[in-house]
């Protein structure tokens, strides 16, 4: 990173973070909505832990992985919508007129989103533990969990960036949400794959990359260190990033056409 970028990127990250936390309508649901679903599902499906072969000590611990993935969805929506708004209002033009590189522009926004993702992860973990969830991997596990959250937010954030630069308006970016929602639901979100009875659902959930993310997050909560599950989760995050990074760059170059 050049000396100039070392000043520019943190300032842009700061702006991205500050503007987000100043919009309660954006932050409050990003924290409370996953927590609410967590509370409902943990209590509503508590009895599912009685199914033979259920891997976690209780359903609460099992379902606590969901908010960490939902933070990824909010990264898509938040980052995408923010960038789209910058395009719509002309703020992107203002940034384009400064000696800021294209990569600096995106890195700054991304860094702000990642910061928010880390805050979300810490809140979810704290509340989950307070509610009685197990966490078997200790302090090192917390560090890995935060790293995994960063990888997830980065990967999903790239999807948001691609959509924002491609479509240039917030509504189109929001239109992505249902698609991602489907990926989230048709996964091992609510039950582990081997406890899903319906064949079609189990097949979809088994091949759904989101299931690998769930498995990775969950491996830190119960069952002791599981390098394979972690490799799977980091691998999927890296895979999504590998697909969307070039797409995001292409969309960015098509959008910011300055000479």
């Amino acid at each position: 990173m050049s000396a100039r970028a070392r000043t520019q990127v943190p300032e842009l990250a700061r702006r991205s973070f500050v503007r987000t936390v100043r919009q309660p309508a954006q932050v409050v649901p990003a924290i409370t909505f996953p927590l609410f679903l967590f509370a409902i599902n943990a209590a509503g499906l508590d009895s599912a832990a009685e199914l033979p072969g259920f891997p976690a000590p209780d359903y609460l611990t099992f379902i606590l992985a969901v908010p960490f993935l939902q933070a990824g969805l909010f990264a898509v929506a938040g980052l995408g919508a923010d960038l789209a708004r910058d395009i719509e209002t002309g703020f992107l033009d203002r940034l384009s007129l400064t000696p800021l590189s294209r990569s600096g522009l995106v890195s700054g926004q991304m860094a702000g989103t990642i910061a928010l993702g880390v805050v979300q992860a810490v809140v979810f973990l704290t509340i989950g533990l307070a509610a009685g969830a197990s966490f078997d991997t200790g302090a090192a596990g917390v560090a890995v969990l935060i790293l995994l959250e960063i990888a997830i937010v980065f990967a999903f954030g790239l999807i948001g960036i691609t959509a924002a630069f491609r479509f240039g308006n917030g509504e189109a970016v929001q239109g992505l949400f249902p698609v991602l929602f489907i990926f989230l639901f048709l996964s091992t979100m609510a039950l582990p794959a081997d406890l899903i009875e319906q064949d079609w659902f189990r097949t979809v959930a088994t091949y759904n990359p989101v299931s690998y993310l769930f498995d990775g997050v969950r491996s830190l909560f119960y069952g002791g260190w599981d390098p394979a599950a972690l490799a799977g989760a980091f691998g999927v995050a890296a895979g999504i990033s590998a697909v969307f990074l070039p797409l995001a760059v292409r969309a960015l170059n098509a959008r910011v056409v300055r000479t």
Partner: peptide, 27 residues
């Protein structure tokens, strides 16, 4: 489209993904 797709999707996700819950004692 959303008015139709959302219920159908929830039905598929809940009925499909959670059917094993019917095996919980007391269901």
């Amino acid at each position: 489209i959303p008015a139709v797709m959302f219920p159908l999707f929830f039905f598929a996700a809940f009925a499909g993904g959670l059917s094993n819950v019917a095996n919980v004692p007391g269901f």
